[in-house]
Write a protein that binds this DNA or RNA. Structure first.
Length: 804
RNA sequence: GGGCGGAUGGUCUAGCUGGUAUGACGUUGCCCUUACAAGGCAAAGGUCGGGAGUUCGAAUCUCCCUCGGCCCACCA
């Protein structure tokens, strides 16, 4: 047997770097596409955005999915674990603009996309390095970026398929836009912020009377778009005015007072005025009052148009200031009351959203709410209660999915319009991916009118329209095994995007294939700052994972990530990283001790036919841990599994077993008890290492390579089999005896402690108290061990109660 | 307003298909024991947010209340 010198100290920094290169060079995590014997376990890995940096939250949730991936790999699965990046959104635009000093607005879309792909190609390796560094065992060659050809093609194909199904429609409709980003935004992109504003009380004369009404509004600038005014039927103050008309100041428009049961009598003056469109309630109202024509005064860019009269060319904010001034001048503004209210803003830029009527593409799905609820219920949720969030969301959906975006970057909507008749011409599947701005439809003439001139659609698809296809995108990287990969076994992701990524993916899969995209979902929580608060740049409490890896090691960070229960948020505390390091150091030292002793002998030559009681005891303890840890991991409860393994290692193996066998293996002559100890040490340590491997992959690999690799065919510990249970007869008796033994050793330790004695000090006599006579019988078999381990010459027993 | 999850020694945390509580950090004492001083051994410390109920028995089940958290909906 080769003698390896086990390094005295563990150096995580160098080791992790070295191990990483080893993994990469030997393609340890490569998906074996030719292997048809192993069952595939497929993971729909979340694609992060290259434009960002890896943050602690990433580290947290990717580590958690990696525990499962590694466990499944060791359990004999052929793990399909791709890694993509999501690069067709605003963040990418900003990055490309910055790096290349250009503006997307002023650049040809095709050129910008190419430039983007080129830039991403350049910066990607550095970015992905972070993910490799945390020990992610994905196959990085199963790669996609949501803006590449492969993804554009699949995304456009999805559009065409849904269009043909009649699921996609184009409609002029009020839609939320961000006046700053100048694009349509979806419900999920909203963030509500509480803001201070003024509730303005405005006086309007009632026509043909000398009376007037006062209504209150936070959006006075929409006055030119006012189309209605309502009061509640039960409102004694206003009941009599229903059916009368008022004359709006400034515009002189005549508005009829109507009755509407949704009016809150207590809010403002109890009179609501409706503009097209100030908010959801305006849209609701106009849907209830079909005969009323909207006045669209805001354009898609957020600027007021000619219908706004003198306010044309302004933004809402500018118009508001001006109109308040004008109302004051003519004496119509009675008062302004400062209030706090919640406004919907665009989550990316914080700008208040506007409602504007524009032509947009929608995926029709409101009619399928029940189908989606049922589909959600079919998924196995871990943790289970997270399903409520999806249900809640589906039940609350109000609009179809608006999938067009007015941006000059993204996946182009594969559509042209006939110049003459406006007929929509879909791209042909054969020509995908297509860019209507530069490509022409395959059919040269409009099928309706025969015209041969086409207007390209300028809009692109919502980023979620593409990222909701990650299962199809990833699985089609290995087309020949598509059907074994899809539906995926697992979708891991964090809870904040259940309502979009998870939901949208489910929707697409249901619409295209009528099945769920995955069998089960694993929802992770958030990484919080040490105080338990959300990390954000503005708060300045962001923790750099890279710095922490430098300081403590990736294994320590992963150890921290394994601390939280699945789905729970977890505060980041350096103390936990220290615990992680402590475990690594302990694992290193214990392995050093065990291996340095094992290395002295050729284990194959040591044959023992008679295992000692305490050796069977530790094997049985290991068996129990294997069983419970396996159960927990099968339920995705990695934190419980880790806890069990850690307990076995620290409290049973190190604190007790290693101490128990020292006196045996320190002997020079090769006795049976020494042989038994060596053999047991060998495989218990190996089992422990294997169980730790999914959590702390670096140090376990290093120890494997230093010793166990010599006698194992597998190149890496991560390719080894997950430990199996060894069977012994009468294991309960061994368990009982071993546990009792621990108890007695504890008594001896206590005795020495009380008497300020070192543990190795030999004592002549000690009295041990036992509970029953039966215990005494068990103990007699291992009296020699007690004397040896406890360093005692004579032992007497004091039995508390006698058995009948 | 609707929904979901929490509240356990000084701090963080496990347990929650019921039988007086897990571990870590911190604190104190002992030990420089041939794996480990970022150590080992040992000790002190909690009756499980409050109230009621079910039960022989509840941190664990039911109901109510209080206080955080998250998701969703919210106003002219």
């Amino acid at each position: 047997m080769n003698q390896t010198t086990f390094p005295k100290k563990y150096n995580p920094k160098d080791t992790e770097e070295k191990i990483n290169q080893f993994w990469e060079k030997n393609k340890i995590y490569k998906f074996d596409k030719k292997n048809t014997k192993k069952k595939i376990y497929s993971i729909d890995t979340p694609p992060p955005t290259v434009s960002g940096k890896m943050h602690l939250g990433h580290l947290f949730s990717y580590s958690q999915m990696d525990f499962i991936a590694r466990y499944k790999r060791m359990s004999g699965f052929n793990v399909f674990y791709p890694f993509g990046t999501d690069d067709n959104g605003l963040a990418t635009i900003i990055l490309i603009e910055k790096t290349n000093k250009i503006r997307a607005k002023d650049t040809d879309r095709d050129k910008f996309t190419k430039l983007c792909l080129k830039t991403l190609e350049k910066i990607r390796p550095q970015y992905i390095r972070s993910w490799k560094k945390i020990g992610l065992s994905a196959d990085f060659n199963l790669f996609y970026t949501t803006i590449n050809k492969h993804c554009r093609e699949i995304s456009q194909k999805s559009f065409i398929d849904l269009y043909k199904q009649g699921r996609i429609y184009r409609k002029k409709t009020p839609i939320m836009i961000c006046p700053k980003c100048k694009t349509a935004i979806a419900q999920v992109e909203l963030e509500d912020v509480e803001k201070k504003t003024y509730l303005n009380y405005i006086k309007v004369p009632i026509i043909k009377t000398n009376k007037y009404l006062v209504f209150a509004t936070t959006r006075p600038e929409l006055l030119p778009a006012c189309v209605g005014m309502s009061v509640h039927l039960d409102d004694e103050r206003y009941k009599k005015f229903i059916g009368k008309k008022v004359k709006m100041p400034i515009t002189n428009a005549e508005i009829e007072i109507t009755e509407d049961e949704n009016i809150d009598i207590k809010y403002g003056t109890g009179i609501a005025y409706f503009c097209t469109y100030g908010g959801v309630e305006d849209i609701d109202w106009i849907t209830r009052n079909q005969e009323i024509k909207p006045i669209n005064i805001i354009d898609i860019n957020g600027i007021y148009n000619e219908k706004a009269g003198k306010y044309a060319g302004m933004t809402s904010l500018q118009a508001r200031a001006k109109i308040i001034n004008d109302l004051k001048k003519i004496g119509c503004l009675i008062k302004q009351e400062e209030i706090k209210h919640t406004v919907n803003t665009h989550e990316r830029c914080g700008t208040d959203i506007e409602f504007v009527a524009t032509e947009q593409f929608f995926i029709k799905y409101l009619d399928l709410k029940n189908k989606f609820l049922k589909a959600g219920a079919k998924l196995k949720w871990h943790p289970e209660f997270m399903k409520n969030r999806l249900d809640n969301w589906i039940k609350g959906l109000k609009w179809d999915w608006c999938i067009s975006r007015q941006k000059n970057f993204g996946v182009p909507i594969p559509v042209w319009y006939c110049k003459k008749c406006g007929n929509i011409i879909l791209a042909d599947e054969k020509q995908l991916p297509v860019d209507p701005l530069k490509d022409k439809p395959i059919s040269e003439k409009c099928t309706k009118c025969g015209c041969n001139e086409f207007v390209p659609e300028k809009d692109v698809l919502d980023t979620w329209a593409t990222s909701s296809l990650t299962p199809q995108i990833a699985a089609s990287l290995i087309p020949e095994r598509f059907n074994e990969i899809y539906p995926f076994d697992l979708r891991p992701q964090s809870h904040d995007i259940i309502t979009f990524w998870l939901f949208n993916t489910l929707v697409k899969s249901q619409l295209h294939n009528n099945i769920n995209p995955w069998k089960c979902v694993m929802i992770s929580g958030w990484a919080l700052d040490p105080k338990g608060e959300k990390m954000s740049k503005s708060k300045g409490n962001v923790i750099e994972p890279q710095l922490m890896i430098e300081k403590y090691s990736a294994d320590a960070l992963r150890y921290w990530a394994a601390k939280s229960k699945l789905g729970d948020d977890l505060a980041f505390k350096e103390e936990y990283l220290k615990n992680g390091m402590k475990l690594c150091i302990k694992l290193w030292n214990a392995s050093k001790f065990v291996i340095s002793n094992l290395e002295k002998y050729n284990l194959n030559e040591i044959k023992h036919s008679n295992p000692e009681i305490l050796d069977i005891w530790i094997i049985e303890k290991t068996n129990i841990t294997i069983k419970t840890a396996t159960n927990y991991l099968d339920k995705y409860e990695y934190s419980q599994a880790k806890k069990q393994i850690e307990f076995l290692f620290f409290n049973v193996f190190c604190d007790n077993y290693l101490e128990f066998i020292k006196y045996r293996i320190y002997r020079d002559e090769m006795t049976n008890s020494k042989k038994s100890a060596l053999i047991t040490l060998n495989f218990v340590l190996f089992d422990i290492l294997k169980m730790f491997a999914p959590f702390i992959p670096y140090i376990t690999e290093e120890i494997y390579q230093l010793y166990f690799r010599q006698t194992n065919a597998k190149k890496s510990i991560h390719l080894c089999d997950w430990p199996k249970i060894k069977h012994y007869k009468n294991k309960n008796e061994f368990l009982e005896t071993g546990d009792l033994f621990c108890n007695i050793i504890a008594q001896i330790r206590q005795y020495k402690n009380k008497n300020n004695l070192s543990l190795k000090t030999k004592i002549k006599n000690i009295k041990i108290s036992l509970e029953t006579q039966q215990e005494k019988q068990l103990i007699e078999k291992i009296i020699a061990d007690i004397k040896g381990v406890g360093v005692v010459e004579n032992i007497s027993f004091d039995v508390k109660k006698n058995e009948k």
